[in-house]
Amino acid sequence: MEYKLTYNAFRDGLKEGKLLGLKCNQCGIHICPPRKVCPECQSENMDIIELSGKGEVLTFTVIYVPPQGFEGPLVVATGKLDEGPWVIGNIEGMNPSNVTMDVIGKRFTVGYKDVPADSISGGDRIALTFKLV
């Protein structure tokens, strides 16, 4: 069966302002980012849906020694979307030196930013961004 929601389609959705995911028609869970099968019940019977694009911060770090091609300091967070899935992205719009554990539990809306290609990336990519509300 053909891959339901490819990375390219997921990325195009973000560029149109939509956070796309999958809904499993067998067990009902939401999946984001996309997978070939439902991680819960292994069904391939899933439909593409638009998620709320809202969630809360579960944990975070401020990276002072970034990989080549990235500029630090870089605030990276793991968030939980309101529909359940976990996502990783960059908290934007905060001074990195002011980020403390108080950020855990804060609400965010999801956006994206372009991440330029390098010689081992297989092309351009995007990273999710989290804007605290």
Partner: peptide, 26 residues
């Protein structure tokens, strides 16, 4: 990390375990 859905955030290994430390403390 997943090259499309985790890595492009600039996530490093110290960064992964830093998130572990904050998560543990919380």
């Amino acid at each position: 990390p997943h090259h499309l859905y985790e890595g492009p955030s600039g996530l490093t290994f110290p960064g992964i375990f830093a998130m572990m430390a904050h998560f543990y403390a919380k």
